[in-house]
């Protein structure tokens, strides 16, 4: 392994960590503003111009708050749980191509950490592990709300993961590869070749599963503030809670990237315009996450299970069968 590769990888890791931690913070600001405008409010206005420095204020608050480990919690698990959420969110990013490759100082940079040939499998698997954060944190918290949230997390987990996998199977059959770069190259021929047109059902199913995965409204059940306080996060404070938060928002960004690359053409032919288009798509999907939060009600956990098992799973299976038949002839 040569030194240049090592240095490049470390630099990439640092850049991804920094950019997405900052983006997670900025995402909260963006979310508060968008929700506020949709509800005819102004949102944060006091810290800095138009409340822009609110992120800094929140960050300082989270970092300097006392780290409380309450009585009766299972200490080690309680402490490790937020790290699992944040770490797996960022680990999943390793297989995502954020940009087309470009040349800098005569050196070709691939803005992807590891172009492994099972990229999607890896991303979904690691994001799935991320659910251990809420699970363990809730169980270790010695708090009834956290426990309810854990039970919900488990029930949601066994529902949506099926949909994620089955929904992706049909596009996978068409592309014939698990690498996100191959997905991107499959759709290089412009808007008409986007997979969303040939696999609209899979697209809708995957977006629904993505909402369940990131725990956003209408599937905001695990940490549903108005029902079970903050769910698994009830007993957390300071930076531990902040890690959960960063994990959640980083996950939202990464899922947006995955959706944009899988179904919406990714960065296209790899030109600068394609990179901008990818950013625009990601921004729109992220905006859609916030948009639905302002517009849609939450479903109950049993409704989510009903939806996943009785409606979405049969549709996904039928979709796969039809795709197979079409590909065969």
């Amino acid at each position: 392994m040569d030194i240049a590769f090592l240095i490049e990888t470390v630099v990439k890791i640092v850049v991804i960590l920094l950019v997405f931690s900052a983006l997670a913070g900025f995402g909260t600001y963006f979310e508060r503003k968008v929700l506020a405008f949709m509800q005819r409010r102004l949102g944060p206005m006091h810290v800095g111009p138009y409340g822009l420095l609110q992120i800094a204020a929140d960050g300082i608050k989270l970092f300097t708050k006392e780290d409380i480990v309450p009585q009766n919690v299972v200490g080690p698990i309680f402490k490790i749980a937020p790290v699992i959420t944040a770490a797996t969110a960022f680990m999943a990013a390793a297989a995502i191509p954020f940009m087309p490759s470009f040349t800098m100082f005569g050196y070709e940079v691939h803005p992807i950490l590891a172009d492994i040939n099972i990229g999607i499998l890896y991303i979904l698997g690691v994001m799935g592990i991320g659910l251990y954060g809420p699970l363990l944190g809730g169980l270790a918290s010695a708090n009834k709300w956290a426990l309810i949230s854990t039970a919900r997390a488990a029930s949601i987990f066994i529902s949506y993961e099926v949909i994620t996998g089955l929904a992706l199977l049909a596009p996978l059959m068409m592309v014939g590869s698990l690498s996100l770069i191959d997905f991107n190259n499959y759709q290089v021929g412009g808007i008409a070749s986007w997979i969303v047109w040939s696999q609209p059902v899979a697209f809708v199913l995957f977006v629904i599963a993505g909402f369940a995965e990131t725990g956003r409204t209408p599937f905001h059940l695990v940490a549903n503030d108005h029902e079970i306080i903050d769910g698994f996060g009830t007993e957390y404070s300071g930076m531990r809670w902040g890690l959960f938060f960063i994990g959640e928002y980083a996950n939202m960004f990464f899922i947006s990237f995955v959706i944009a690359i899988l179904f919406l053409g990714g960065y296209g032919d790899g030109s600068g315009l394609g990179a901008l288009a990818l950013l625009a798509k990601v921004s729109f999907i992220f905006f859609f996450f916030l948009w639905t939060r302002a517009a849609w009600p939450d479903v109950r956990p049993d409704q989510l299970m009903w939806l996943c098992w009785k409606v979405l799973m049969p549709i996904a299976v039928i979709n796969i069968v039809i795709t197979g038949i079409v590909m065969m002839f």
């Binding site: 506020a36 405008f37 949709m38 005819r40 102004l42 948009w291 639905t292 517009a295």
Partner: peptide, 22 residues
């Protein structure tokens, strides 16, 4: 109906009829 909901909040956002009292 879900899209009606989306449209309603989006309409309010672009109308920018803010009622906040600072």
């Amino acid at each position: 109906e879900l899209f009606v909901g989306l449209w309603v909040v989006f309409r309010e956002m672009i109308k920018f009829d803010i009622h906040t009292v600072q």
